[in-house]
Amino acid sequence: MAQDRPTAAELLAAIADFLREEATPALDRAEPRLGFQMRVAANSLAILEREARLGAGADAREHARLRVLLRRDGTLEDLNRELARQLRTGERDERDAGLMAHLDATIADKIAIANPRWR
């Protein structure tokens, strides 16, 4: 049975907002070192909120692309392990346009979760 609202993403967003807007300023006044740690925690929760919304779709797209690129099936980790092996041995390199399109798309999805403001 599905859980009630808030969804995982909604709850994580609410916690992150609370930590950032209410808990962090109070900690900054009382103990700056813990204020810094709280910023790290709030930022990590924001990553989890984006992962809860976007992670499953990103994984599915990456998995589908890898099946086509490698022309085989397996778990996401298996296929990434095979790709990593081919890249280390030089069986594939940056001249492979399909490879580069796959990596660009994969990293675009990853950074949209981990740090969408990175440029």
Binding site: Q37, V40, A41, N43, S44, I47, E94, M100, L103, D104, I107, K110, I111, A114, N115, W118
Partner: peptide, 26 residues
């Protein structure tokens, strides 16, 4: 350490940069 754990999620920043750098120096 939560701080060390969270650094793991910063690795992808370098992946963005590496793909860009490899294109510049191709």
């Amino acid at each position: 350490s939560m701080e060390l754990a969270s650094i793991g999620r910063r690795a992808v920043e370098t992946e963005v940069d590496l793909l860009q750098l490899l294109k510049e120096g191709a």
